[in-house]
Amino acid sequence: MEEGSLGCAEVLALLTDYLDAALPPGRHRAVAAHLGACEECSAWLAQVLATIAALGCLRDGVISAQVLAALRESFGERCRGGGVTNDGGGARGRRT
């Protein structure tokens, strides 16, 4: 990895801000460069975008409180070690 480039954990931690265009220009370019070169991270980005597209139609009141609680629990379990790891540095997760 060249000096100043971002690692996968850092890119995944910045992915939401990257998608929201909330990164400074240099950091945005570094994330974009990593995504262009890293097959795993670009696959993760594709999954995030597919999730956003699939769930984007949901509005308040569309999902029952029970289903919403089950979804939160499911995602919580994945982030605690059921297939997604967290490096402790704020990474949103990485499939293992």
Rank of each mutant, 00 (worst) to 15 (best):
E2C: 14
E3N: 06
G4K: 04
L6D: 06
G7H: 07
C8E: 11
A9I: 07
A9N: 12
A9S: 14
E10F: 15
A13N: 06
L14I: 02
D17W: 07
Y18R: 14
L19D: 01
L19H: 03
A21R: 13
A22M: 07
L23E: 04
P24W: 08
G26V: 08
G26H: 09
R27L: 15
H28P: 08
A30K: 12
V31N: 00
V31P: 05
A32Q: 05
A32E: 14
A33G: 12
A33W: 07
A33P: 09
L35F: 10
G36W: 07
G36R: 03
C38V: 09
E40R: 10
L45K: 07
L45M: 15
A46S: 11
Q47R: 08
Q47W: 11
V48T: 06
V48Q: 04
L49E: 01
L49Y: 04
L49W: 00
A50D: 11
T51G: 11
I52N: 12
I52A: 08
A54L: 02
L55E: 02
L55G: 07
C57T: 07
C57R: 01
C57G: 10
C57L: 13
C57P: 14
L58P: 00
D60T: 05
D60F: 10
D60M: 05
V62R: 02
S64D: 01
A65K: 00
L68Q: 03
A69Y: 00
A70I: 03
R72G: 00
R72V: 00
E73L: 06
S74T: 13
F75S: 13
G76V: 03
E77G: 11
C79R: 14
G82I: 06
V84L: 12
V84Q: 09
V84F: 11
N86Y: 09
N86G: 12
D87K: 12
D87I: 10
D87W: 13
G88E: 02
G89H: 11
G89I: 15
G89D: 10
G89E: 10
R92A: 05
G93R: 05
G93A: 04
R95P: 14
T96C: 12
